[in-house]
Structure formats: structure tokens, C-alpha cells
């Protein structure tokens, strides 16, 4: 479904991504694991068109989307829950969700999806008329995922969805991700919480300072001695 080959991304003179290659097969959950600053967020931002690739290619469903503008990538079927949630603070929760349906012409479909999000996250439903900026961190995270569900699409990019959540909510959000995947959405997941991510993922790639190094099935990676020492703390 998604194939990233020899991706390079620079911030001015800083080479954040030097050579990253990986694949996300249709219907699977793939996780990118790496230390702080390894380039996970940058990789996701390049895929959804927020950063320019200085080299390499990004192919989505056979279409080269390298350096396509973000607003042209979204309707192809990629939605992205960004690092730091990026909720619109002075729009209401409802307005946040409505905007996520920007590219969908049929507004009754948007409302149907908003209802679905409310079912998945009852907490969001209670707070539809509240301003986004006044939600708690965990609620904002739910809203960020909810927005991506309204945007819809075939591939969901998740940048640290468990960040700042209480342990019980972490489990819940991972359950949700697994459920969303079961319903047919392919997932590319970036996580600090490597253990949890490996639990639900099919494949994993290790990112080290701008390079993809180790890769394989999630179960195998979970038992890889090098990975266990470096990322799982065991």
C-alpha cells in the first residue's frame, strides 16, 4: 500500500532523514520505533506532504506522492494524527471534527462519521460544544484520533497516540487502534511505547538517527536481543 524508498529530508543544513526505506502492506499495522530525534515524526510528515523530500520516493497505492502538496494527499486516502495533537484551540470540538471532513463533499457522510467517533469516544460526545483548547490532554488525543477517523482513508498515520495518557487510557487507545485496523484501515504507528506498539503491530522497523536499520515481523523484533536492550529496556 505504501512504499518509502531511500527517503531523505533536510531541515536547512540538518539532515534529519538520511536513508529511510520501509513498506506498509495493505491491511496491516506497521510500527516505526526509534529513540528521540531518530526521525520518526519527520518521516510521517514527509509522507503526508508537510515536509519536502530531498531525495528518495514515497509511493502510495502505485501512485508517486513524493512532494505532492498535503491537501492533495489527504483525499487519496491518508490521514495523519500529528505529534502534539494539534487541536484547533478556539474551534469547538464539533468544529474540529467538521473540518476534518473538509475533503468530503457529502456532508451527511461527515455527520455519520462524527456520530461514529462519538460512539467510539463517548467522552468526545459529551464535549462537542466545548472549545478544543479546553479539553484535557487525553481528551485532545481522542479528538485527534477522532478527526483522523472523520477524514477517513485507507492509511492512518499515528504519531505517538499514547503520549501523555494515563496507563489505562494507553491500553484503551491501543485497543481502538487494533479495532480500527480490523475494520480495514492500514496503520503506520510511531510510538515511544515500543512494547505496546509491538504487541499490536504486524511488522516493525527500527529507525536510528535518520536510517532504517533493523526490520522484521513484530514478534521477531520483540525478541531481537539488540532491540530488547536498546528500546524495550529488558
Amino acid at each position: 500500500m505504501l512504499k518509502v524508498t531511500n527517503l531523505k529530508v533536510n531541515y536547512g543544513k540538518i539532515e534529519a532523514i538520511k536513508d529511510v526505506s520501509f513498506e506498509v502492506p495493505d491491511g496491516k499495522i506497521v510500527t516505526l520505533i526509534g529513540a528521540n530525534g531518530a526521525g520518526k515524526t519527520t518521516t510521517l510528515r514527509a509522507i503526508s506532504g508537510l515536509e519536502r523530500a530531498a531525495g528518495g520516493s514515497i509511493v502510495f497505492e502505485g501512485k508517486d506522492i513524493t512532494n505532492l502538496e498535503a491537501h492533495k494527499i489527504v483525499p487519496l486516502g491518508i490521514s495523519h494524527v500529528p505529534e502534539g495533537r494539534k487541536i484547533f484551540p478556539t474551534l469547538t470540538v464539533k468544529e474540529n471534527l467538521e473540518l476534518a471532513g473538509w475533503t468530503i463533499k457529502d456532508k451527511t457522510e461527515v455527520n455519520r462519521r462524527i456520530d461514529q467517533v462519538c460512539e467510539i469516544f463517548p467522552r468526545i460526545k459529551e464535549r462537542l460544544s466545548q472549545l478544543g483548547g479546553t479539553l484535557s490532554g487525553g481528551e485532545q488525543q481522542m479528538l485527534a484520533v477522532g478527526r483522523a477517523l472523520v477524514t477517513g482513508g485507507k492509511l492512518l498515520l499515528l504519531d505517538e497516540p499514547s503520549m501523555g495518557l494515563a496507563p489505562v487510557l494507553v491500553d484503551e487507545i491501543f485497543d481502538r487502534i487494533a479495532a480500527i485496523n480490523k475494520q480495514g484501515t492500514t496503520v503506520l504507528l510511531v510510538e515511544q511505547n515500543a512494547m505496546e506498539a509491538l504487541e499490536i503491530a504486524d511488522f516493525a522497523y527500527i529507525l536510528e538517527v535518520g536510517y532504517t536499520t533493523i526490520s522484521g515481523e513484530a514478534k521477531a523484533i520483540e525478541h531481537d536481543q539488540r532491540v530488547r536492550e536498546a528500546y524495550l529496556g529488558v
Binding site: A70, H71, P75, S79, K86, F88, L99, W102
Partner: peptide
């Protein structure tokens, strides 16, 4: 209006607006 919401969204967070599919 939806366009007005988009204007407010772009003013608040350009990256997030782009991820909604808005041509900022």
C-alpha cells in the same frame, strides 16, 4: 460557514489545517 471555520483553522495551526486537506 465552513470557509470561515477553515479561515480560523489556518490562522491557528497551518500544519493541522493542511492535514485536514485544506488548501491553505
Amino acid at each position: 460557514t465552513t470557509l470561515g471555520k477553515a479561515m480560523r483553522a489556518v490562522s491557528q495551526d497551518k500544519d493541522a489545517a493542511r492535514l485536514m486537506g485544506i488548501d491553505i
